[in-house]
Design a protein around this nucleic acid. Structure first.
Length: 577
DNA sequence: GCCGTTTTCGGCCCGACTGTTTTCAGTCG
């Protein structure tokens, strides 16, 4: 599957053309092509074989030829030519918030800086003073952008890392050399970003496992390779650590390598108090060195007098105490989620029409979805004004009848305006089943103003869900300056659900705040915010995030069956039919 | 570079915000 690779190629071309000041529509064509290629469910190679490349939206004759060239030669002559114009580090500057093509080019051509690091140094040395249009405030903004950029770097989104880990694990499993393969570390804890990847293997032929691992074609460099351990780096600079163990110590090793560090410190202290000692090889009696437990994690936790702790909870956020008291929650699972209440179509900025979205969701076995397109103040997304909104309601009700396998609710993702009012009148809102209220603009209000704004939206009787409540985007945008505690309390009091947006870069509410929402009695709703049918599959990322926040099925709005859900929505929205 | 019941050329999304200017350029969504 080389779709992602080709999407990146188109993105890079778009970046370079943008720096050269090329026709903006041509640039947009490349970006749109990249997006559509990335969203494809089918392999580009098999589409190419069918000769159907131009059937992909946004792919015409030219781009189809470029895809063909890339598939057959592994390179693209156009791109090679363009790449000579700007060093890769200059292209990377575009990922720094506050730097676009114009500034990147300016810095490169007039300061000679070829990377983000060099740019930072030059700015700190004050070498920007003679540059046109660059003053103190701009420099401050860019320096803080560089900080944000660095925080997002080096770590990969879970949604990228987990499939990679699963591919490595399955290659090792299918070799027949391993009795068991598990991913450990933060990826097993389902942390939203992952710094590296830990793979544990049980085998009595460790040398061969190591050889197989080190020879995998995904790696560009093998850092170390011994009898039971190896580390290697993938082409996109992601480190993978392999550890091969004997069957007996698997539980202890899995527990040890899953972490987190702070969770393990707590566990080992606990063991010490009981006269025991815990290592990656097992739980032993301190005095005699006698093995107490080692083959499964369950045994180890049990021997310490605790209930089993799900990996997602192992962050030392109170799970040790709760496990000792037997009071850990039963976490929500992917199978508990019955529907999706935040879905877009091509009525606003989605790519698929209503039928496609509904039929895909039905195919996945969802019991219900709510269509929630944007409202008109979000003009970039071609949001709906009242007339189109009303027309869409009629159309949804009509189309829904043709899909007996799934219930389709009418909704909107309504913009929360700066004063906290909603971007749609009450007459329209009263005709909807679900209203997701979201902040999409004016991100830099003061904490007081922003909090007042969101609280006012929550107080609106038509709002059912607060969409991506903090507005953060991993590696791209900080969370809104918001008194989240007050927002959670208000949501709990008003019966408005807080969204856990499953989009891998959002995961918003973030896990720590999901936990706070649980503590304060609020309800969450794990939605995909799908703009493309395939994005319904993002649900798992949201569920992981919710689990890391101790969320239970009982406190998850869309774990309710349809009748219960409607009853719940109606409780807040008397007008619901 | 794509696209088409306004169809093979001429559109294609554009408003808000910021910081720089003194009427605007760059970035973002």
């Amino acid at each position: 599957m080389r779709n992602l690779e080709i999407a990146r190629v188109f993105e890079t071309i778009a970046d370079i053309l943008e720096m050269e000041g090329d026709n903006p529509f041509r640039i947009r064509a490349y970006r749109r092509a990249a997006q559509n290629v990335e969203a494809l469910a089918e392999d580009l190679e098999s589409i190419a074989q069918r000769g159907a490349l131009t059937e992909i939206p946004g792919i015409g004759k030219d781009l189809a030829a470029k895809i063909q060239e890339y598939l057959s030669t592994g390179r693209l002559s156009d791109l090679e030519r363009l790449k000579d114009r700007f060093p890769p580090g200059v292209l990377q500057m575009l990922s720094v918030p506050g730097i676009g093509p114009k500034k990147a080019r300016l810095f490169y051509e007039s300061l000679g800086v070829k990377s983000v690091d060099e740019l930072e140094a030059a700015l700190k040395e004050g070498r920007w003073k003679d540059l046109p249009g660059i003053r103190e405030r701009t420099v401050e903004k860019i320096l803080s952008g560089i900080k944000t950029f660095r925080e997002g770097m080096g770590r990969k989104l879970l949604s990228h890392a987990l499939p990679l880990g699963e591919a490595i694990a399955s290659a090792l499993s299918s070799s027949g050399l391993a009795k068991r393969v598990e991913l450990a570390g933060s990826i097993r804890r389902r942390k939203e970003t992952v710094g590296d990847l830990d793979v544990l293997v049980i085998s009595d032929r460790p040398r061969e496992v190591v050889d197989l691992f080190a020879s995998m074609s995904i790696f560009k460099e093998v850092l170390s390779k011994g009898d039971t351990k190896s580390s290697a780096i993938t082409a996109d600079n992601f480190q993978v650590d392999l550890r091969v163990l004997e069957e007996g110590s698997f539980g202890a090793a899995l527990q040890y390598f899953t972490g987190s560090k702070s969770h393990n410190v707590r566990i080992r202290t606990l063991a010490q108090r009981k006269g025991l000692t815990l290592s990656e090889y097992g739980l032993f009696e301190e005095a005699s060195g006698k093995l107490v437990a080692s083959s499964t994690e369950e045994e180890i936790y049990a021997a310490l007098g605790m209930s089993y702790v799900e990996p997602e909870l192992r962050e030392d956020r109170g799970e040790v105490e709760a496990a000792l008291e037997g009071k850990l929650p039963r976490l929500v699972e992917l199978e508990d989620i019955r529907g999706d209440l935040h879905v877009h179509s091509n009525w606003s900025d989605g790519t698929a029409d209503l039928e496609e979205m509904i039929s895909y969701a039905q195919g996945l076995g969802l019991e219900y979805i709510a269509i929630t397109d944007h409202t008109s103040s979000l003009s970039v997304a071609h949001g709906l004004d009242r007339e189109r909104a009303l027309r869409q309601v009629e159309e949804i009700r009509e189309i829904a009848g043709r899909f007996p396998g799934i219930r389709v609710l009418c909704g909107l993702e309504v913009d929360v305006l700066p004063d906290g009012s909603l971007d749609m009148d009450e007459e329209v809102l009263s005709k909807l089943d679900v209203v997701v209220a979201s902040v999409h603009s004016h991100f830099n209000m003061s904490r007081e103003e922003m909090t007042r704004r969101v609280l006012r939206a929550l107080q609106n009787p038509y709002v059912s869900i607060l969409g991506h409540p903090t507005g953060r985007i991993l590696g791209e945008r900080e969370a809104l300056d918001l008194d989240v505690e007050a927002v959670i309390r208000e949501a709990a009091a008003r019966g408005v659900a807080l969204e856990v947006n499953s989009y891998p870069k959002r995961l918003d509410l973030p896990d720590a705040l999901v936990k706070r929402a649980m503590e304060l009695g609020a309800t969450i709703c794990v939605n995909t915010d799908a703009h493309v049918p395939q994005q319904f599959n993002n649900l798992r990322w949201g569920v992981y995030c919710a689990r890391r926040g101790w969320a239970t099925r009982e406190r998850c709005l869309n774990a309710l069956g349809f009748e219960e859900l409607v009853a719940r929505l109606r409780r807040r929205r008397p007008a619901l039919r």
